[in-house]
Write a protein that binds this DNA or RNA. Structure first.
Lengths: 255, 255
DNA sequence: TCCAATTGTTTTATAATATAAAACAAGGTT
DNA sequence: AACCTTGTTTTATATTATAAAACAATTGGA
């Protein structure tokens, strides 16, 4: 495998640090790497320029730099939530027989980014990439309920509570009350508010900082799924949401 | 400033990724960097070997690798302990009037990584970055007592029990016995073993896995602090150590 | 289905750079 | 004050990184 020796060496310098050794001297690195100290110096100065390494001004020693944190966070953001959630969506669809969705927020709407139809599913309208309103969908209520307060206030400025069915929430005060209920219950339901005859429940998905980044839901027809069956789906869905969140880093102890 | 060009280029490749672009093709990187694609390929393969970059097997594109997360977490650990402990050191110094230290292990010694001098403090010899022996200091005894058994055995192989005062422990058997006492008491004391006239007590700091990663101590002069006063410092110090450990994730249960 | 275009990967000659020896500057210890 | 250690700088040259060329694999369009 082709390799760039000087890059290889620099990355191995980054590996020298561990929990006990947060700082290292040039001469220590030189000895551990069996490289001349002026070679080590050049490598360190390049790493330093890019902020992967910094020099403690008090001791002259070197330590890991903030760029690692920055790039590491970016990586976390990129972890494909779809890939992580896919197995859970399959499991939900199988366990309930219904359609399960994965939705993220884009601006003032939700967007379907994945969907699995169960064996008894008859919900066909949703499509990946399609948008869904926040005020009258279970996933939308979840996303709105758990967004930061300031962001929610900005969202509601001039928000258009379009009527979808006779049961749609159409005023701000009722919506806010609904969101408080969602926070208490840790799930949301839209009971024919978006589509006549269709009931959905949704729960939040959190990332490593606890921030809600998506919602996962189960969608049903009232003609196919009675009240008791729907209620029984809620803990199953909650467990699923928790597992996805864990895989997204939520609950990982601050390290 | 001296610079390694190939390292510089590799680190700039890592900078190309952002929130919108989590994956990049070799040809895209080649164009953005104005480098030949075989040059880019070599850089990417070296980064990949060290897990700073990985290749999506489905698309052939490249993305940031898990090593950034790992090194980033390590950095967080290093940052946190000083920042987290700083407030406690200030509190300890204030509450006891003495000097408080934060020490981590490096090889066969401890290293001061922070220090706060209290209003009644007269201990001046310690300096950040300075090393301290494990066998005759309170912080050293803590670090040795709570390290993994195999690591302790390796440490003691050929360990030089240098004499610092007439009270220094100078043989392995006595030292091991002392460490057993430290484990039972959950604190260590050096009673003029490192420096005549100086007595110190120290307690462990644990991370989220329970591993001891540092020690925090109070240092006193026997001429300024009598036995009863020193004994009264111990529970204060223990509480401080526990608070620091909690902030380092120790004791947190995974959701 | 076939073919062209594009992209990823490999090889290797040589232009360009990384390396370390030597020297200097700064800090720490005795 | 003197000596030792460590960090930093300079520069000749040994060594490597680079890219041109070629090949392999994949993708997209007709």
């Amino acid at each position: 495998m082709p390799i760039i020796q000087s890059l290889d060496r620099a990355l191995r310098i980054l590996d020298l640090f561990d929990e006990q050794e947060s700082e290292l001297k040039i001469t220590e690195i030189s000895r551990k790497m069996d490289l001349h100290k002026s070679t080590v110096h050049s490598l360190l100065k390049t790493l330093q320029e890019h902020r992967y390494i910094e020099q403690n001004p008090e001791t002259g020693k070197y330590r890991l730099g903030m760029k690692l944190l920055e790039r590491g966070h970016l990586l976390l953001q990129h972890l494909d939530i779809r890939a992580v959630a896919r197995a859970e969506l399959l499991e939900l669809a199988s366990a309930t027989g219904q359609t399960s969705h994965l939705v993220i927020q884009e601006g003032r709407e939700g967007v379907y980014i994945d969907k699995v139809e169960g064996p008894r599913a008859v919900i066909r309208y949703s499509r990946i990439g399609r948008r869904i309103p926040l005020h009258c969908s279970s996933v939308g209520k979840v996303l709105a309920a758990f967004m930061p307060q300031a962001e929610l206030e900005r969202l509601l400025q001039g928000y258009d509570f379009t009527v979808h069915t006779s049961r749609t929430i159409t005023d701000k005060a009722s919506f806010i009350q609904e969101l408080e209920q969602v926070r208490r219950d840790s799930y949301a339901m839209d009971d024919q508010e978006n589509e006549p005859g269709v009931r959905c429940v949704a729960v939040p998905i959190r990332n490593h900082t606890g921030q809600v980044i998506a919602a996962v839901s189960i969608s049903t027809l009232i003609s196919n799924v009675n009240d008791a069956e729907l209620q029984a789906f809620i803990p199953v869905l909650k467990s699923s949401g928790e597992r996805i969140s864990n895989q997204m880093g939520f609950g990982m102890v601050k390290v």
